[in-house]
Simulated assay, not measured.
Amino acid sequence: MIDLWSFTEQTGYAPGTDLVGFDVEATDGKIGSVDEETSEVGAAHIVVDTGFWIFGKHVLLPAGTIHRIDLQERKIHAAKTKEEIRNAPEYDKDKHRDDAAYRVEIGQYYEDNNERGV
């Protein structure tokens, strides 16, 4: 089982890299761009502004859902489909940093999808 809240070595993430503004690609196409990110130990994630794709919704992607980061092209490749990301729990800007139960809910959603092989 992977740690959803940490960047893996395979991503190419270098501590201190500012990912804000990077494009984000699901396995089946672009979903938006990074609006905010944190590399905080045990809570690393990005917040993606999906723009008009899903009506301006923001989604939180734990660092463990990121497959690869292309620093030259400023692109992040998520290991999730558009559908998985679209169906993720609603992003809550007031809870995502300090509410452990909210992070558990997000983590459980992505872990359940991994177990189903989605």
Rank of each mutant, 00 (worst) to 15 (best):
D28L: 04
L61P: 01
D28A: 07
G16K: 11
V48N: 01
G51M: 04
N114C: 04
Q108N: 15
E83L: 12
K93P: 05
K80G: 00
D23E: 14
T8Y: 01
T17P: 01
G42T: 08
I85D: 01
E36K: 11
D23Q: 13
D18H: 04
I85R: 02
F22L: 05
A100G: 00
M1V: 06
E84K: 00
T65E: 12
V34K: 02
T65A: 03
W53N: 12
D70Y: 02
E25G: 01
P89M: 05
D98L: 10
K57R: 15
E115A: 13
V41S: 10
M1N: 09
D28N: 15
K30Q: 12
I2W: 09
R103Q: 11
T50E: 05
E83Y: 07
S6D: 12
G12T: 04
F7T: 06
E25H: 10
L71C: 05
E40W: 04
R74C: 07
Q108A: 14
G64W: 02
D94Q: 10
E111T: 13
K80D: 07
I54M: 13
L4R: 08
S6Y: 02
T50L: 06
I85L: 13
I2L: 15
G117T: 11
D23N: 11
R68V: 00
E83W: 07
G64S: 06
I2P: 15
R68A: 00
S39I: 00
A101K: 15
G12D: 03
Q10E: 11
H96A: 04
E105R: 13
H77T: 06
D28I: 06
A88Y: 02
R74M: 12
P15N: 12
I106W: 02
P15V: 07
K93T: 08
R103T: 07
A26L: 04
E90P: 00
R116M: 12
S33I: 00
A78R: 05
Y110H: 09
N114E: 14
V48P: 01
A101T: 13
A14F: 11
D49S: 13
H77G: 02
H45I: 02
S6M: 08
